[in-house]
């Protein structure tokens, strides 16, 4: 996976979360806190692992802690992706 934008990450995350929750992607608000989504920590970690495979780099263990919404996490990942791209 090359460099990703915040919009691409956000779309990927919303689709995955919607699939897990059995909802339409339009029903997942990007500004909502992960702990407010009807998703337990096991499901969140499974998605995080899947995302690492998609991105091709590991997320820091504190990424979900410090960036607790889809929107914030997507922006963080885009920055990380740019950093990885720059050092690749």
């Amino acid at each position: 996976m090359g460099k990703v934008t915040a919009g691409e990450v956000q779309q990927w995350l919303i689709e995955k979360i919607a699939e897990r929750l059995g909802e339409q992607p339009s029903a997942i608000p990007p500004g909502q806190y992960f702990d407010e989504l009807d998703m337990d920590s096991t499901e969140a970690l499974i998605i995080a692992g899947e995302m690492e495979s998609w991105l091709g780099f590991e997320l820091g263990t504190t990424a979900l802690w410090y960036h607790p919404t889809i929107e914030a996490l997507s922006a963080h990942i885009a920055e990380e992706s740019a950093r990885h791209g720059a050092t690749a």
Partner: peptide, 10 residues
């Protein structure tokens, strides 16, 4: 459909 990457993260 749990992927191995998700299992590792758990």
């Amino acid at each position: 459909d749990t992927p191995m990457a998700g299992m590792r993260k758990l």
